[in-house]
């Protein structure tokens, strides 16, 4: 019994890293602009489609580089056409704008790149690895692709942490995140900062899109993976990069363990008709956290004095 539980736990944690990768895009934009970017999933899809279709015509490295350019152009278009006109508007207005961007990107992406399932081949062997075969019958299974994704994610997070903490632009980003108007008053160019943060978020979307695209094939459903980032954000807090990582790990491990261990028991005990529980279990877990810690595990506590 220990073997299967451990295997599920490890698999869940590795999947959690992939969720964290998507959640990271949300956190970056929220930190810098206070915008909850509902279009993050669509950005992941758009980025993955760009890499997949371009890599059919050129080497993968060139396709990725070109996709980075595309995402920067997209960031500029979003900043120029949407955000610039909505500075200092209510958060809900900005949120609604991202909702529009999401639907536009999904439809436009499919129109330009097509709606088939496309491939991204990262060259990682698909066959699983087995460890401790002498301890557990059949060994402990580890997915190579997910391990590679976890390593990639760790590198990306480290790079982002350095960018935010050490560089001048990073400090400016944090200043904008604290207060748009105060940041503007000390000469921080808000539009440039927003452009940078959307572009960085676009690059994170490329990383997430490549990992998910390699795992699932690139097609529309990738944008729905963003829904899995929502409980991660509730849990980890909207403003914390470590929160996105820890939240991802908890959600990933929690939902997989629930599906494998709790699901069959619920069906048996209550004579249920059956049904996958991992999707709603993640939200329930997040909801329970929300009741006790509304700001999330690592989010900033909001104190307003009257």
């Amino acid at each position: 019994m220990l073997g299967p539980v451990l295997e599920t736990l490890i698999g869940g944690l590795l999947t959690g890293v992939l969720y964290a990768l998507v959640a990271l895009g949300f956190v970056l934009i929220f930190k810098a602009s206070g915008v909850f970017n509902f279009a993050q999933g669509a950005m992941v899809l758009f980025a993955a489609l760009s890499v997949a279709r371009l890599s059919e015509m050129m080497p993968l490295v060139v396709a990725v580089a070109l996709s980075v350019v595309i995402m920067i152009v997209l960031a500029y278009a979003i900043e120029f056409l949407v955000l610039r006109r909505l500075v200092n508007q209510e958060g809900i207005i900005l949120f609604m704008a991202t909702l529009g961007i999401a639907y536009f990107l999904e439809g436009f992406g499919e129109t330009v790149w097509g709606s088939n399932i496309y491939k991204i081949n990262l060259g990682i062997p698909k066959e699983p690895m087995f460890f401790f075969e002498s301890v557990f019958p059949g060994g402990l299974l580890i997915d190579r692709e997910e391990v590679a994704a976890a390593v990639g994610c760790a590198v990306l997070v480290a790079a982002l942490a350095i960018f935010f903490q050490v560089t001048r632009v990073g400090r400016a980003l944090r200043a904008v995140a604290d207060d748009h108007q105060a940041a503007q008053s000390v000469g921080i160019p808000l539009n440039t900062i927003w452009l940078i943060v959307w572009a960085v978020s676009g690059i994170v979307a490329i990383a997430a899109g490549m990992v998910w695209g390699s795992k699932l094939g690139v097609q529309f459903s990738i944008s729905l993976v963003a829904l899995k980032a929502l409980p991660v954000l509730i849990l980890g807090g909207l403003t914390s990069i470590p929160g996105a990582i820890v939240g991802g790990l908890i959600i990933g491990a929690g939902e997989k363990l629930a599906e494998v261990l709790l699901g069959p028991l619920l069906v048996r005990w209550f004579d249920l008709a059956g049904g996958g529980i991992e999707n709603w279990f993640a939200y329930m877990l997040a909801l329970v956290f929300l009741l006790f810690r509304p700001q999330g595990l690592f989010g900033e506590r909001i104190i307003e004095r009257i």
Partner: peptide, 15 residues
């Protein structure tokens, strides 16, 4: 069971 659209099946296949 696999919930719509079916992109998350890790737990299913571990079972």
């Amino acid at each position: 069971p696999v919930t719509h659209p079916g992109v998350e099946q890790k737990a299913t296949w571990l079972q």
